[in-house]
């Protein structure tokens, strides 16, 4: 099946004006403006297929949202190509716009002064949704997201969680084939986050859209995405299955031992440093990163050296690995 989102060598360069702080800087800026050129995205290429949820992961300023903005047609790229549902997004053809949705956790798209029900009716007209389909879809979305009387409350009077649910309904009323989710759970409490995640999965199950998700919450990524793109300084440094990121980028396992009794000075013993990198150590618990190939030897060595009550050997947290990759300096091994 051909990919729905097809990106080749996409780049975006922003030029912003700098201003020195203070009154002097303000006065100077009236006459001379210094430019700052920033390559937000550098030649990225990837594809997203039908029913796929791809996570865009990266530190702040890595270029995730810029990619989403380009693929939604909001901003024009500096170079490169992108085809979404066969369209150039930034040409903003109505046929393209009728099939996409953008959900932004940090920015309300609905009209603040209107109740959600009125906003949805405006969207019904914008997307030309037939009345019976509109009613069916709205009932379904409201039911899944557990929305009731809130539909008749002005958007600005809703809680953040309720507003986000309304944004989701608004974005999906027209059953888009491509959905961009930019930080959809930001600022939400745990139960609201879970509800939104569950809803996204259910929606994917039912309609199989191509979805591109950016989030700083690793749980969003872990629960929703099978595939991730890790971005660093505008470039994609990893594109692959989420479970394979461990194999590819984590050459270690996490070895944890609980001691039977308190052992004085255990953290200073040279055996520990010899078997791995100590992450956490006190008189009752030791946690190490040990080389993957030497994990069994390291475990046997520690069992023989200390009074061990319990020993576990685990794969590292995916979030930790991603953070390591993101935090690594450009050019340095991740």
């Amino acid at each position: 099946m051909p990919p729905i989102v097809h990106v080749r060598g996409l780049s975006k360069r922003f030029t912003v004006h700098k201003k020195a702080p203070g009154l002097r800087g303000s006065v100077r800026a009236l006459f001379v403006r210094d430019k700052l050129v920033k390559d937000a995205v550098r030649g990225v290429s990837f594809e997203v297929g039908e029913g796929e949820i791809v996570g865009l992961v990266g530190a702040n300023g890595a270029g995730k949202t810029t990619i989403v903005k380009m693929l939604a047609g909001i901003i024009h790229p500096t170079s490169g190509q992108a085809r979404v549902l066969g369209h150039d997004p930034w040409k903003r053809h109505n046929d393209f716009r009728r099939q996409i949705a953008l959900i932004m956790g940090q920015k309300a798209q609905l009209w603040w002064d209107l109740p959600a029900a009125d906003c949805f009716l405006v969207l019904k007209e914008i997307y030309r949704i037939p009345a019976d389909r509109y009613r069916r879809t709205l009932d379904y979305l409201a039911d899944v997201l557990n929305i009731g009387d809130e539909l008749n409350v002005q958007i600005r009077r809703l809680s953040l969680g309720e507003r986000m649910k309304m944004e989701l309904i608004a974005a999906l009323l027209h059953t888009p084939k491509v959905v961009y989710l930019d930080e959809p759970t930001i600022g939400l409490d745990l139960s609201a986050q879970r509800a939104i995640r569950g809803f996204i999965l259910e929606y994917r199950e039912r309609h199989a859209p191509a979805m591109l998700l950016t989030s700083h919450y690793m749980e969003d990524i872990e629960r929703l995405c099978e595939r991730i793109l890790i971005m660093r300084e505008g470039e994609i440094v990893y594109d692959g299955r989420l479970d394979q990121v461990v194999r590819k980028h984590a050459g270690y396992k996490v070895l944890t031992i609980h001691l039977q009794e308190q052992v004085q000075g255990v953290c200073e013993t040279p055996e520990l440093a010899a078997v791995g990198e100590v992450q956490e150590c006190n008189e009752e618990l030791i946690r190490l990163h040990v080389p993957r190939r030497e994990a069994a030897t390291a475990a046997a060595h520690l069992l023989a050296s200390y009074p061990v009550a319990d020993l576990t050997l685990e794969e590292p947290e995916i979030g930790d690995i991603i953070e390591r990759i993101m935090a690594a300096q450009k050019g340095a091994p991740a």
Partner: peptide, 8 residues
Amino acid sequence: TRYIIYPT
């Protein structure tokens, strides 16, 4: 942004 996204 919303008017760029919406087909109108």
